[in-house]
Amino acid sequence: MNKHGKQFAKLFSTHFKMTFREKQVWFWSIFYPVLLMVIFMIIFGGGSSDSFSAKIALVEPQGNPLSQGLKQSFEQVDVFTIMDDQPVSQDQAESWLKDKEIDAVIVLPASVTDTEVGLLMNKESQNSTSAQAINGILNNMVLQANLMGQNAEDQLHVTADYISSGSEKLEYTDFILTGMIALAISQAGLFGMVGMVEMRRNGLLKRLMMTPVSMRLFGISNMAVRFILSAIQIVLLGLIGVVAFKANLDINLLSLLFIFIVGTLSFAGFGFMIAA
């Protein structure tokens, strides 16, 4: 037993050195997944937030109590960000709209008797969800104002709530993070496979079979190093994802461990199968 332990330690350190002295392993198994994750996080992670928001510009042709009231209520709506924080001229607003700097222009009524609230949106994005949302919100606000004007209270209102099937809200960054971890595990496995095929090609496996070394111990120690490499990848990617990109590492640890072991073993198994 002690003899086996010693031989295992030697083989383990051999595989360890062979793996971590290989620059390609550093690049493909550590640097590459991290780089890929950072790129994906930057490209796709930024746009995602929990709620809808839109930039609008207000145009107030002539100040009056009605437009003042509406203006205040727009300011109170969180989803709207008002450009310049105050009404601007119609021309200015339209040029912003053309440049797509804002999502919509709202033209407030010119007088108390005017019943028109104008909504200008970019033609190219008229079918977008934000256009529909702005339209909906605006309609709702006008309806509220109408009801208030008539001193009537609405009898019915809809309360909408969405229930996520995940344990907590899942964002795109979370998907990237878990995806990258999966990629990294397969990458590490694949690399071990290449190493094994290389050993077969250059005759090292054959050479080892000429010695009394236990090929089982050789395989087990190889897998042990593979596990370490995968563990490093998971910790590193997890840390970068959580710390730098505020991703939720909302993973069932038990199933992660299961996937980690099965994934690493199956890729290592492929390697042995091809090399044998």
């Binding site: 030697k10 090292l204 054959k206 009394p212």
Partner: peptide, 26 residues
Amino acid sequence: GVQPQSSALFDLLTVEENLDVFASFY
């Protein structure tokens, strides 16, 4: 002891490390 025609060695290991690993087999 066998020296095969293709010199099969652990090429990322040093001379001493190679000898050391092989010695551990015996």
